[in-house]
Amino acid sequence: MLLKSDSNIILPSSFYQIPTLELAQNLLGCILIKKTEDGNCSGYIVETEAYLGPTDRAAHSFNNRRTKRTEVMFGSSGHAYTYTMHTHCLVNVVSGNKNAPEAILIRALEPLTGIDQMIKRRGTNQIKNLTSGPGKLTKAMGINMDDYGHPLWMEPLYIVKGYEPISISNGKRIGIANSGEAAEYPWRFWITGNPFVSR
């Protein structure tokens, strides 16, 4: 059983001002919170994927591609980068410095609070399936495109201090087979043995 903190310390903007690969691991064990009119939900971040921008063929900002969608990535770190893939909204943490567009995809959460609301939104009562994927967790938490660009140290979408994982594993990222050598980069990180990891 992992030690879990009940701390409500919102992580400051300075927390995000470190190299992307380091931040992707430091986010593990932190608590993502979303407050909505329907209720508040939270979960421990248990899986992330890092995307290193201009030099990473798998990144939306590869080759400094600047579009309406990627604009937030060219700003300061610690903001939410939401985008729609197929019918799902996915949420990322902007990392890197200004004009160094990098981001970290939050791939999976371990549900903490607001589980009844998550069940209602997802239409399933299988707890392990509620937030074990990037599209699942946004639907369960009520995260959507309105959260684009939101600073993650302010309500209603924010991250607080959680616990420090005992062990972190890493491997290849998922769903990027057509990105050349970038498909092999071991930039997916997860809490070793956590049952809520996407796979």
Score class of each variant (00 low, 15 high):
3 L>S: 14
4 K>R: 14
5 S>W: 01
6 D>I: 11
7 S>Y: 04
9 I>W: 07
9 I>M: 09
12 P>K: 04
20 T>Y: 01
25 Q>H: 09
25 Q>N: 08
27 L>V: 08
30 C>P: 00
31 I>W: 00
32 L>H: 03
34 K>W: 04
36 T>E: 12
36 T>V: 12
38 D>E: 15
42 S>M: 08
42 S>D: 06
45 I>E: 00
49 E>A: 04
49 E>L: 06
50 A>D: 03
54 P>L: 07
55 T>V: 12
56 D>R: 05
57 R>K: 15
58 A>D: 07
59 A>G: 09
64 N>H: 14
66 R>Q: 14
68 K>P: 02
70 T>G: 05
72 V>W: 01
74 F>Q: 05
76 S>A: 13
81 Y>Q: 04
83 Y>T: 06
87 T>M: 15
87 T>D: 14
89 C>S: 13
90 L>Q: 07
91 V>R: 01
93 V>L: 04
93 V>M: 06
93 V>K: 01
94 V>W: 00
95 S>K: 03
96 G>R: 01
99 N>C: 10
102 E>P: 00
102 E>C: 12
105 L>W: 05
109 L>H: 03
111 P>T: 07
113 T>R: 10
113 T>W: 03
115 I>K: 12
119 I>M: 14
124 T>A: 09
127 I>R: 11
129 N>E: 15
130 L>Y: 08
130 L>H: 07
132 S>W: 02
135 G>R: 09
137 L>W: 03
137 L>Q: 14
140 A>F: 10
140 A>W: 04
144 N>D: 15
145 M>H: 12
146 D>I: 12
147 D>S: 11
148 Y>W: 12
148 Y>M: 14
149 G>E: 12
152 L>Y: 05
153 W>H: 13
155 E>S: 15
155 E>Y: 10
155 E>H: 13
157 L>F: 06
158 Y>T: 08
160 V>I: 15
160 V>T: 14
161 K>I: 00
166 I>T: 14
166 I>A: 13
174 I>Y: 09
175 G>A: 13
175 G>R: 11
176 I>Y: 02
176 I>A: 06
177 A>L: 14
179 S>A: 15
180 G>Y: 11
185 Y>V: 07
185 Y>Q: 08
189 F>C: 06
190 W>Q: 01
191 I>N: 00
192 T>R: 04
193 G>Q: 09
193 G>T: 04
193 G>K: 02
194 N>A: 07
194 N>L: 08
195 P>R: 08
197 V>H: 02
